[in-house]
Design a protein around this nucleic acid. Structure first.
Length: 484
RNA sequence: GGCGAAGUGGCCGAGUGGUUAGGCAGAGGUCUGCAAAACCUUCUACAGCGGUUCGAGUCCGCUCUUCGCCUCCA
């Protein structure tokens, strides 16, 4: 079966074929680095991480670009207001460069926790000012942009398809009666800034043919996408709230400049809500990832995100996270059990699960269904292992490999954090093994003597220390409990 | 007002015409010294009203409600 992707541009699922066979170019709008990442970032970047992982799994060579916005994103999209980075610098009494560096590092720390793989290229807007200026020059030349008082604006009337992504195509109708339009130097109220002249005291500014100033927010994505991926790319991803105006502006300025389609597949992920209300900075209900990670395992957050579809809203609550924690632990248990199990004789029919998993992922990255398949598989594996015939070595290996591929490599929800590598860790874990063996030996003695209060005490205290003991038919097993 | 999405069982969350989604929680059972884990069985659904159809959470219309964008936001 082939991969189908929901294309926001046609509002339908379309069969995906890359422009150049075997190679996929994908650009995802990155964060504006003026604050710590929140759960919304987690949903977005985990979702696209899985998109990239699945494409790679299918054998494509994926070139993944995700920008860092460190200039030009104003606190108001009507081309007024303050630069977000500058504002934060003012609030923190430091300079913009330190702000963007600090929060970029913070962003990657959190993404690493979530096992979000780094993009191949992570270009910063401030490092691509010449490219952005060149694009503006090109747009002036094609007659799509004009200069007023050192500012450069894109003329939406010069690009009749403006608004085709969001469905806002009648600019005059949109403008009439919304707000009292202040006298503006723009030719049309919907025109957007490509280059802004820096005001007195503005720190982030560069020389340009028009003024000492800075680029408009929408410009960076077009310039960097074209630079690293070409004038037409396969996939452009981002949050739904950026459809308009951000992505419509990108389309306008890119296609006006090149005369070619800018993006073949637009993918938009939905929002995170808290108690049914959108999470937003202004609402002061955003869930900071660093705070969240203190309370729960980042991998649970990843699992929680993937349990809903990327185009659905995801409602955050403590009880939902708790349910995910327990659910994920179930999969981990099977995963561990499969690894430690003694070899039996029965064959296991893996194929149907593999097929269902593939179908789910090929159907617009339906991770909730893919995860449901893993739960069904988990149940089947446990049932098989409970039987006296057990599972043959070949079957055990096959199922193990599949869980490794599906759960670990693709979804990234069954990882190997428990068996952290590194010499020190290995040494420590060897010592831990030894210590626990001693305790288990003492407990076994107690149980032989029917001294159950003592054996239960050992078990309870180990559990309190994060080590869980289970008495199985195969003997006593133990595992390191993840954080709740 | 314009553009768009959605209303599924106690909670989360899939499902675009006909067979059990799945997870969590609940109930009963098997196993166990007891637990834990696992397995088996099981109870709660498709906002409302019409329509199309042999048959509709699933298509159409209307009503109600919620959410997103149009202002910062992944």
């Amino acid at each position: 079966m082939s991969l189908f992707i929901y294309n926001s541009l046609g509002r339908a699922k379309e069969k995906f074929e890359p422009l150049y066979p075997g190679i996929v170019s994908i650009y995802v709008c990155g964060p504006t680095v003026y604050g710590h990442a929140h759960l919304g970032h987690a949903k977005s970047y985990v979702s696209f991480d899985v998109v990239v992982r699945w494409l790679r799994h299918k054998g494509y060579h994926v070139k993944y670009v995700q920008n860092i916005t460190d200039v030009g994103h104003l606190t108001d999209d009507a081309d007024e207001g303050e630069d977000k980075i500058s504002k934060q610098a003012r609030l923190e009494k430091t300079d913009p460069m330190e702000i963007s560096q600090f929060y970029t590092r913070s962003f990657y720390e959190d993404m690493d926790q979530l096992d979000v793989l780094r993009a191949n290229i992570a270009p910063a807007a401030t490092a691509h000012i010449p490219e952005q200026i060149a694009l503006v020059e090109r747009l002036i030349k094609t007659g799509n942009a004009y200069v007023v008082n050192g500012n450069v604006y894109f003329s939406v009337e010069s690009f009749p398809e403006y608004g085709k992504l969001s469905g806002r195509t009648d600019q005059d109708a949109l403008q009439s009666g919304i707000r009292v339009e202040m006298r503006s130097e723009k030719r049309h109220p919907s025109d957007f800034a490509l280059w802004k002249k820096a005001e007195e005291g503005h720190l982030m500014k560069w020389n340009s043919p028009w003024s000492v100033g800075y680029p408009g927010w929408h410009l960076e994505c077009s310039a960097m996408s074209m630079k690293y991926l070409g004038e037409t790319i396969d996939i452009h991803g981002g949050g739904m709230e950026n459809k308009f105006p951000h992505h419509d502006c990108e389309i306008a300025q890119s296609e006006a400049a090149t005369g070619k389609p800018y993006v073949r597949f637009w993918m938009h992920n939905n929002m995170v809500t808290v108690n049914g209300i959108k999470m937003g900075k202004s609402l002061k209900n955003s869930v900071n990832l660093k705070d969240l990670f203190k309370e729960c395992d980042p991998q649970v957050i990843r699992f929680f995100v993937l349990q809903s579809h990327y185009r659905s809203q995801l409602d955050f609550s403590v009880s939902a996270i708790k349910a995910s924690t327990t659910g994920l632990e179930k999969l981990r248990e099977t995963w561990r059990r499969l690894r430690d199990q003694k070899i039996g004789s029965a064959e296991f029919a893996l194929e149907p699960f593999l097929q269902r998993f593939t179908d789910a992922m090929d159907d617009d990255f339906n991770t909730p269904v893919a995860i449901a398949v893993l739960f069904d598989l988990s149940k089947a594996i446990n049932a098989a292992l409970d039987r006296s015939e057990g599972m043959s070595e070949k079957s055990r290996q096959e199922t193990h490999d599949f869980l490794q591929a599906a759960g670990s490599d693709i979804l990234g929800i069954l990882n190997h954090h428990e068996e952290s590598s590194g010499r020190d860790n290995q040494l420590m874990s060897k010592r831990l093994d030894g210590v626990i063996e001693i305790l288990l030996g003492l407990r076994a003695e107690a149980r032989n003597n029917k001294d159950f209060p003592l054996s239960d005490k050992i078990r309870d205290r180990l559990l309190a220390a994060g080590i869980e003991i289970k008495d199985t038919k195969e003997g006593v097993s133990w595992s390191v409990k993840s954080r709740a």
